[in-house]
Design a protein around this nucleic acid. Structure first.
Length: 815
RNA sequence: GCCGGGGUGGCGGAAUUGGCAGACGCGACGGACUUAAAAUCCGUUGGGAGUUUAUCCCUUGUGGGUUCGAGUCCCACCCUCGGCACCA
């Protein structure tokens, strides 16, 4: 009887091989079906997939398979995010070349991915570290460069004084120390490559063309940080030719300015500092440069600063205002200078208290009688001590002060953004080389498109010096100028790996294309992505950069759509032993140990069953047994001993079987459509449990039974593709179940003639009756009042009213 | 501090959006099968009272409120998990 045993490893291997040989999931652009492009974020080539990867990929595959069964021409591609720092660290540690390390991982991960049994079109696979891919990353960089969207500028970067190199943010530990040598990381100004993402700040606030979770849209909106305010010019007491510009959202408090603060790096600091304060100021600047970013940005740190000896003039009231520097003011935001209004700003209040700077109230709280404020008052109020603006509500005052300032040319309304341009330079080997050349004669010269790719040299040396191996690779650095032909040097920085993921979803449309990054006709057919799934941790990184990049490529003229991903769904995180899985914590679940015994279908279904996909969940070693048992029960139900059939079938039993079958179809359809996989599986379990009872009842004819079983298999096909395919074959259906349409339901069959009516007295359940679903209100009420149990509760009481909810309940209100 | 998700049995989680709280599954307990164990199958399983049959009371983080009726709506608070955090 081995033939009737469920042996997942055997049947899974069998079907995976067959699907691959038949190219069952290959998609082309000439299908009569409507297209559907569904993808999940490609994995980083860290070495092996753990169950967390499966948690992202398996349900996404289920959804893609569901769309196939709905009749779409579904493209569901897979690839590898293959550039990045871990490969370089592995090179240093294990003396293995990053390319070798990465490609070994790709091979291992591809093998693992194939075991999921997903409907990936493997012909479209891409690996971002291969020249056939990254030459186009370079190509697109050049397009942005020529459009003025890529530029070279100076930026403060993380600098480790011990390793003598720049560090990426992720290489700086939380306490501000270098991850490699533990020295304190400081900021240093270096020439870097940037993308003008700020050009798109306003357009990126517009989410009208996407259906994304509110959460992600809010995070991106906050990240852009658009702020409407006023830029105001303050004169200098000592010199007429200098002025300080400040940015404020509270011009209504301009009469309350009692000091001014510049960022320590502000260019005017050196010029304005008086000789007697110079030493103190320089010491402060040096100290703040050595403070780590974390320390400097800590909101709990007490605000400190030093007076530079100079005074500015508030043009609105002619008052002289002492100028300080303090590192809570950031050079990168606004103008790098703020006006200090201690009465109406918490930070300014704390600063003024510490240094005994006067606090002048200019916005009166309701019922204020001139008493000193004990804390900053930031609520609305009436303007006081503000000259001609006295008595005006401050909200209105903002506009009136703005009008006045603009009429006098003291400043103007201005919008600022928290968003900064995207710094894409990385001082590393294992990334896409930036295709630029430095020529002593011609300056910065882009590599011509026909000379791409600029290949990574294979013979670079990896030493733990903390510096980019490219910089010391003579064969790479020394080149000729594309313009004058003279001796020149290559750019040795490589691109941020987020550059690879900026456009990989476009490349999937045109695998192997070697004349352009993507084929316009294929792009027109597939793009944009209809459904993207992945973790929310990329909200202001990959998901943000890709929106920018899409808009930039549109403006360069390469594409004609505005948004890369129409619909976005974020799955939650799977945890084990209450923690996120990670190698360092040692709580990683490897899929193989379960796949090889229980099967991929069981693992897929269990991951879907843990809880709502959007919420994540905890892996349970015993919980998965429930799914395994269920799939065995389904197997026995379908492939086990044939049940004893009734000749014609009991009509009421058949009707009920139909009702439950169609109810299950509807539930499965709607749950799959909305990513509610856990409740879908619960419904399928109920259905199969019910079928088990039906089988034992002997009240059903052969045909009705076979219909129900066929439906069950079709409903299970997206979730457990191998099991469904095997049983599909065993029940005599032609190959393949994965080319069938999802069953549809008939609303008429869902209606139950008999329902359970709940009877309540004062809202408490007192009885239940089985009645006709169509029972009339009067009949229901009378029936309720006649029940013995009900009588006990209403005896001697006055019936105030009776609530009737058709087909559901009667509630008797008695006092 | 601000923004967002969440708090329901021993555990993971359901609940047609205001109408039978605890679907489905795990675990546990009891039974069948077995020489035995595993697997499988059948029962029981929120807490309490009770003549352990009938029946009743309590129960969705806490405290109030609205309603015939609240896990679901409103107000206040507590806890928890994410994200942002001196943005002037």
């Amino acid at each position: 009887m081995t033939d009737s045993e469920y042996t997942p490893p055997e049947i899974e291997a069998k079907w995976q091989k067959r699907w691959e040989n038949d190219h069952l999931y290959k998609v082309t652009e000439d299908s009569p079906r409507p297209k559907w492009y569904e993808m999940t974020m490609f994995p980083y080539t860290s070495g092996a997939l753990h169950i967390g990867h499966w948690y992202a990929m398996a349900p996404s595959d289920v959804h893609a398979r569901f769309r196939r069964m709905q009749g779409y021409n579904v493209m569901h591609p897979m690839g590898f995010d293959a550039f990045g720092l871990p490969a370089e660290n592995a090179a240093i540690k294990n003396k293995i070349h990053p390319f070798t390390w990465t490609m070994q991982n790709v091979e291992n991960m591809r093998r693992q991915l194939k075991s999921i049994g997903a409907c990936y079109d493997w012909d479209r696979e891409l690996v971002s570290c291969l020249p056939e891919y990254y030459q186009w990353t370079q190509f697109l960089f050049l397009k942005l460069y020529h459009a003025g969207l890529a530029y070279r500028g100076t930026a403060p970067v993380n600098w480790c004084p011990h390793c003598q190199t720049v560090l990426a943010n992720e290489q700086v530990l939380n306490d501000g120390h270098c991850e490699r040598c533990d020295a304190t990381v400081i900021k240093k100004d270096l020439e870097q490559w940037f993308f003008r993402i700020t050009n798109y700040a306003d357009e990126m606030l517009d989410f009208s063309k996407v259906q994304w979770p509110e959460r992600i849209k809010t995070m991106q909106t906050n990240w852009i940080g658009k702020s409407q305010g006023t830029e105001i010019r303050f004169g200098m007491e000592a010199s007429d030719d200098k002025e300080i510009r400040v940015f404020t959202t509270r011009p209504d408090t301009i009469f309350g300015v009692t000091f001014m603060v510049l960022a320590p790096e502000h260019p005017l600091v050196g010029k304005l500092t008086t000789p007697e304060h110079r030493k103190e100021v320089e010491d402060y600047i040096t100290a703040s440069r050595h403070r780590s970013e974390i320390e400097r940005l800590s909101t709990t740190k007490e605000k400190d600063g030093v007076f530079i000896g100079a005074y500015a003039i508030n043009k609105l009231n002619g008052e002289r205002v002492p100028i300080w520097i303090a590192d809570y003011v950031l050079l990168s935001y606004g103008t790098g200078a703020v006006m200090g209004v201690p009465a109406h700003d918490e930070r300014d209040f704390a600063f003024a208290k510490k240094y005994q700077i006067p606090i002048k109230t200019v916005i009166a709280p309701h019922g204020w009688k001139g008493e000193e404020l004990t804390e900053a008052y930031i609520e609305p109020g009436t303007m006081v001590n503000s000259g001609q603006f006295d008595g005006i509500p401050n909200k209105q005052g903002i506009e009136e002060v703005n009008d006045f300032i603009e009429s006098k040319d003291y400043g103007q309304r201005k919008t600022t953004y928290r968003l900064r341009d995207w710094l894409i330079s990385r001082q590393r080997y294992w990334g896409t080389p930036i295709p630029m050349v430095y020529c002593p004669e011609c300056g910065v010269v882009p590599v011509p498109e026909e000379d791409l790719p600029v290949l990574l040299p294979e013979d670079a040396e990896f030493k733990p010096t903390g510096e980019s191996p490219l910089k010391y690779c003579e064969s790479f650095v020394n080149t000729t100028c594309p313009r004058c032909g003279g001796k020149a040097k290559r750019e040795t920085d490589t691109m941020d790996t987020f550059m690879c993921s900026n456009w990989y979803y476009m490349r999937y449309t045109s695998p192997g294309c070697d004349t352009v990054p993507f084929d316009p006709a294929k792009m027109k057919y597939w793009m944009p992505v209809d459904q993207y799934t992945g973790g929310a941790e990329h909200a202001v990184m990959h998901l943000f950069y890709s929106r920018f990049f899409t808009k930039a490529l549109r403006d360069v003229g390469l594409i004609d759509f505005d948004e890369p991903f129409i619909r976005l769904f974020n799955q939650g995180t799977i945890v084990y032993q209450k923690h996120k899985m990670s190698k360092s914590r040692g709580n990683v679940i490897t899929p193989e140990e379960y796949v090889s015994v229980l099967g991929a279908d069981t693992v897929r279904a269990y991951l879907m069953f843990i809880g709502p996909w959007s919420q994540g969940g905890e892996w349970s070693d015993t919980g998965i047994n429930g799914i395994s048992r269920w799939l065995n029960r389904v197997w026995n139900l379908v492939a086990g001993e044939e049940p004893a059939f009734h000749d014609k079938g009991d009509p009421s039993a058949i009707l009920e079987l139909q009702r439950i079958t169609h109810r299950t179809i509807k539930k499965a359809y709607q749950d799959l459509d909305s990513f509610h996989f856990n409740t879908m599986l619960a419904a399928l379990m109920e259905f199969s449990n019910y079928l088990g009872n039906v089988r034992d009842s002997k009240a059903i004819d052969r045909k009705s039974w076979q219909e129900a079983i066929t439906t069950l298999l079709l409903l299970m096909a997206p979730s457990t593709p191998h099991l469904a395919e095997e049983l599909w074959e065993r029940t005599g259906h032609p190959y393949s179940i994965h080319q069938q349409l999802f069953p549809s339901w008939d609303e008429k069959l869902l209606v139950n003639k008999q329902v359970t009516m709940v009877i309540q007295v004062n809202g408490k359940l007192r009885d239940k009756l089985t009645v006709d679903a169509s029972i009339a209100e009067a009949d229901a009420k009378q029936l309720a009042l006649e029940q013995e149990r009900v009588k006990n509760y209403i005896e001697g009481k006055e019936i105030v009213k009776i609530i009737f909810v058709p087909g559901r309940l009667v509630n008797i209100v008695a006092r």
